[in-house]
Simulated assay, not measured.
Amino acid sequence: MAQRLIVGISGASGIIYGLRALQLLRDCGVETHLVISKSAKLTLHYEMDMPLEELESLASEVYPTSNVGATIASGSFKTGGMLVAPCSVRTLSEIATGVTSTLLTRAADVVLKERRRLVLMVRETPLHTGHLRSMTALSEMGAIIAPPVPAFYTRPASLDEMVTQTVGRALDLFDLDHEQVKRWQGD
Rank of each mutant, 00 (worst) to 15 (best):
K113H: 14
S76W: 00
L112F: 10
S139M: 15
M121I: 13
S57C: 03
S74Y: 02
G14E: 09
R20M: 12
I145D: 12
S60Y: 12
V110P: 01
Y17K: 00
L52G: 11
L44Q: 11
L58P: 05
L127G: 05
G18H: 04
S37N: 02
K78R: 14
V99R: 08
G14I: 06
L118W: 09
E31M: 02
A59Y: 07
T97P: 06
Y63K: 08
T79Y: 08
S66W: 01
R133L: 02
E124C: 13
I95T: 15
H45Y: 13
D27G: 05
R106M: 04
A143H: 10
G130N: 13
R133S: 02
R133K: 15
L104E: 06
R123A: 14
V68C: 01
S139R: 14
L132A: 14
H131P: 01
L120Y: 13
G75A: 06
Q23P: 02
S39A: 15
T105F: 07
N67V: 01
L103S: 07
A73P: 05
T125D: 02
H131V: 14
H128Y: 14
A85H: 05
L118K: 10
V111E: 01
C87Q: 11
D27L: 10
G29P: 06
P51H: 05
P51F: 04
V35W: 02
P147C: 11
G18L: 10
L118M: 11
T91V: 03
C87A: 15
M50S: 02
V35L: 02
P86V: 07
H33A: 09
P64E: 15
L127N: 04
L132C: 08
K41Y: 00
V110N: 09
P64G: 09
E94D: 05
A40T: 10
L24Q: 12
R117W: 03
R20P: 01
V111A: 13
V149C: 14
G69T: 04
L44T: 00
M48L: 12
M135T: 09
L118S: 13
E61G: 00
K41L: 04
V111Y: 07
E54W: 00
G29E: 01
R26Y: 01
E114H: 05
H128S: 09
H128A: 14
V68Y: 00
M82H: 10
L112K: 13
R26F: 02
S74R: 12
P64A: 14
R20C: 04
S66T: 14
S134K: 02
P150A: 06
G80N: 13
M82C: 15
Q23R: 15
V110A: 14
T65E: 01
L22S: 03
V89S: 07
S39L: 01
A12F: 12
E94R: 14
A146R: 01
H33P: 00
L103D: 00
A146W: 10
V99K: 04
L25H: 09
L120R: 01
K38L: 05
